[in-house]
């Protein structure tokens, strides 16, 4: 994975497959502590203790189509390479929270990448799932809620190319406004 936005797209895939109805993605950048924290929280089916342990094993997957499951291990690798770590908290039938911490200025910390494209694509690609995305950079904050977007659209499908394009621009402009470096 080349950047953090790709990891987000990937980890969200797990949440969607776990039957989540709401997925919360948050990125918190703190210059003073030199930290970047990515949290993906869902209300999907969750995992038991055994499965949580296995999730970090690249040779474990719940899929039948192939024998490996690299999504979480790759994120863990990138976090640990930039002197951070990855934690999974999960409870059956409640949901899962994955937290990846990075040293923000670390040379191996992947760039954030195309966040606006990723967020707009995850919202339009999974129209039945709601997404909340919060990006904090020190004291500045940008909040994006797919439920608000759907209210504003008033029946126009969120999968419309015109809408996707608009959301991409809106997220991009707002992130630039609060000073996020992609």
């Amino acid at each position: 994975m080349r950047d953090i936005s790709m990891h987000i797209l990937d980890i969200i895939g797990n949440s969607v497959r776990a039957g989540a109805s709401l997925v919360e993605v948050s990125i918190e950048e703190k210059s003073a502590e030199d930290q970047l924290i990515l949290v993906v929280k869902d209300d999907g089916c969750g995992m038991d203790e055994e499965t949580v342990k296995n999730a970090l094993d690249p040779f474990f997957t719940s899929r039948k189509t192939r024998k490996v499951g690299l999504g979480i291990p790759l994120l863990q690798q990138n976090a640990e390479m930039s002197e951070g770590n990855l934690k999974i908290i999960s409870e059956l039938d409640k949901g899962t929270t994955i937290t990846a911490t990075f040293v923000r200025s670390h040379i191996d910390r992947p760039p954030l990448g195309d966040l606006s494209g990723t967020i707009s694509l995850m919202v339009s690609g999974n129209p039945t799932v709601e997404f909340l995305y919060i990006h904090q950079l020190n004291d500045e904050e940008f909040k994006f809620d797919s439920r608000e977007v759907k209210d504003a659209l008033d029946g126009v499908p969120i999968t419309e190319p015109g809408v996707i394009n608009f959301l991409k621009q809106m997220i991009g402009e707002n992130l630039t406004e609060i000073g996020v470096e992609l």
């Binding site: 504003a152 008033d154 126009v156 402009e173």
Partner: peptide, 20 residues
């Protein structure tokens, strides 16, 4: 000006007509 959801509401009519 940074885009907001209000701009999306303004676009709605256009999008709707395109769909129909």
């Amino acid at each position: 000006k940074v885009k907001t959801l209000d701009d999306l509401k303004k676009m709605r009519a256009d999008l709707q007509s395109k769909i129909t």
